[in-house]
């Protein structure tokens, strides 16, 4: 599945919800189901500091594709993290670098990307792309 296809899948998934509560309940479930990051990667150098919620991000390159694992101490942030991992993980560095990621807006969770520094999400997306770029540069 391409990045766009996964984004569309998520948009369709969220369209089933009538109200914000169902949407957040889903997000919380996604957060809970995110595979737990290996504790050896939950170190300070993997930490993306938000003003409130913290995010840990680890990536590695396997067969030319970037695999992300991540975690957060806040469950809603973790749900958002799970969505980002689902969309971006297992794609080539080029695909990741060029991803528009406008699904967040389309599922009505844009406020989580506001520059309030309150959660580490904006920084996390930036870091995901930076990692991809680093792999691309290393490969070339």
């Amino acid at each position: 599945m391409t990045i766009e296809e996964t984004e569309q899948e998520i948009i369709d998934e969220f369209e089933l919800f009538d109200d914000w509560m169902q949407k957040y309940e889903h997000l919380i479930e996604l957060g809970k189901s995110l595979p737990i990051i290996d504790t050896k990667y939950k170190t300070d150098d993997k930490l993306i500091k938000g003003c409130q919620a913290q995010v840990w991000l680890h990536s590695e390159l396997k067969d030319g594709k970037v695999i992300y694992t991540a975690d957060s101490d806040a469950i809603i942030t973790k749900g958002m993290v799970a969505l980002m991992v689902r969309v971006l993980s297992n794609h080539t560095p080029d695909e990741i670098i060029n991803a528009k990621l406008d699904f967040i807006d389309k599922i009505g969770l844009k406020q989580h990307l506001s520059p309030t520094r309150s959660n580490g999400l904006v920084s996390m997306i930036k870091q995901m792309k930076m990692d991809a770029l680093a792999y691309k540069v290393k490969r070339e």
Binding site: W20, M21, Y24, C51, Q52, A53, D73, A74, I75, I76, T77, S118, N119
Partner: peptide, 22 residues
């Protein structure tokens, strides 16, 4: 067992403005 940020986010959806964090 619940992060303050999560509580603030849910309360905000209900129109309730609280502060969370440090």
């Amino acid at each position: 067992g619940i992060h303050p940020f999560d509580i603030g986010t849910i309360l905000d959806q209900m129109g309730i403005a609280v502060r969370t964090g440090h």
